[in-house]
Nucleic acid binder design. Structure first.
Lengths: 212, 212
DNA sequence: CTCGGTTGTTCAATGGTGCTGCACATTTCC
DNA sequence: GGAAATGTGCAGCACCATTGAACAACCGAG
């Protein structure tokens, strides 16, 4: 019987925690454990119990499986950070030429863009020459698509499907609560804003394309 | 902080172990632990460490996630069946005028289209007048995007993000294995085909748009 | 029926380690 | 300068995962 090496669960946790823009202590408090434990787990010095492991995954809004998947650690560029609020995904990623090799993008290879209002965009794919962006969007608890509180308007059309958490969409004069599995699509010229009032991250697959 | 109840992992283990026709001691020997430990884990009297949990799942040949998932089994909606292979989402839904009311689509309101090769398309949204389709796609075990086995070609661009399960994409002469969180995008003129060789359904959010 | 072979369960005992609390070296911000 | 963040290292304790043996129940063979 081979020793059977357990995948580097810690590294994955750290990776997604950083993607969420969470501090080590913030996660610890959310999970209900000490900060040092999280550190030791992430650095591989300690292996969490099943209950804390489960607590961590739910706090991060990810599946347990994603930690064990053969995602191949991969060299995630230490986060392509870009400070300040950004208005549009296209403008945000414009400076960063698509450096994808194949058509497949794994979680480890994603270009990550963190906004200052508790929102993280991870680029799932982009076809050069098109005005289309394919994103995984994460709204931290309290996060909103515009920190100022105002509504957004831009050209094009927007499609989104929530995979976990809960998200509130203000669209024109109406307000909708999105739950996992719910989807929206609308013309982006309608004033809109997303906001996460829950206490777990809201994650979804988004699709923004601007028909210039 | 709520106690956060961990799913009944033990019961699941026992369930699948019995399905494999394995004795308790046989599994214990395979995993490399004592028989009593397996018993205590299955009866919920003890919680395994992450390493033993991982060893158990690999010994049983199942994913870690399957232990934590809510039963979930089928629960697939009775299905608005439409026999016959369909070539394109747009063509498929063409006969069915968008009868959406608001911009939000919940899982219960989705238009469902079942193909005969173990593939289900659920429309997440559609903006009238556009050649864009926003779908949740489910490949049942053994399902493939074309029952005949041939590759598909059509105009436009295709974006997809897998949320659960495992899916194999044949794109041109290459083959890619998609795991949860992985995403692809490519010009649909490239011959392609999806196939689910796993034993759990593969579910993803897909985006097909044809630039006429 | 009695034996040897299963099956899964339970018990006390122990060794390991998950976890905490604090101190430490950092960096950032006022 | 201090104050408040950040992540890390260490010591120590208590808990619990793990073990091995003894347990009751079942089955087929002799």
């Amino acid at each position: 019987m081979s020793p059977l090496t357990v995948p580097p669960v810690g590294a994955r946790i750290r990776q997604t925690r950083l993607a969420r823009g969470m501090s080590l202590r913030a996660l610890a408090r959310e999970v209900g454990v000490s900060a040092s434990l999280i550190s030791q787990i992430e650095t591989g010095k300690s292996q969490p119990s099943v209950s804390t492991l489960y607590a961590i995954t739910t706090a991060l809004g990810i599946s347990v499986e994603s930690l064990f998947d053969a995602g191949e650690a991969a060299a995630l560029p230490p986060v392509t950070a870009a400070p300040g609020t950004v208005l549009h995904a296209l403008a945000a990623f414009a400076a960063d030429p698509g450096r994808r090799i194949g058509p497949l993008v794994t979680p480890g290879e994603r270009e990550v863009l963190e906004l200052d209002s508790g929102v993280v965009w991870e680029r799932l794919g982009h076809v050069p020459g098109t005005d289309v962006d394919f994103l995984q969007v994460t709204y931290r608890p309290g996060g909103a698509s515009s920190s100022s509180g105002g509504l957004m308007r831009h050209t094009g059309t927007e499609y989104g499907c929530l995979t976990s958490g809960e998200l509130i969409l203000t669209l024109g004069f109406d307000e909708y609560t999105m739950r996992p599995g719910d989807a929206v699509c609308f013309e982006s010229t309608t004033p809109h804003r997303y906001r996460n009032d829950g206490d777990v991250p809201a994650v979804g697959v988004w699709f923004v394309f601007s028909d210039t």
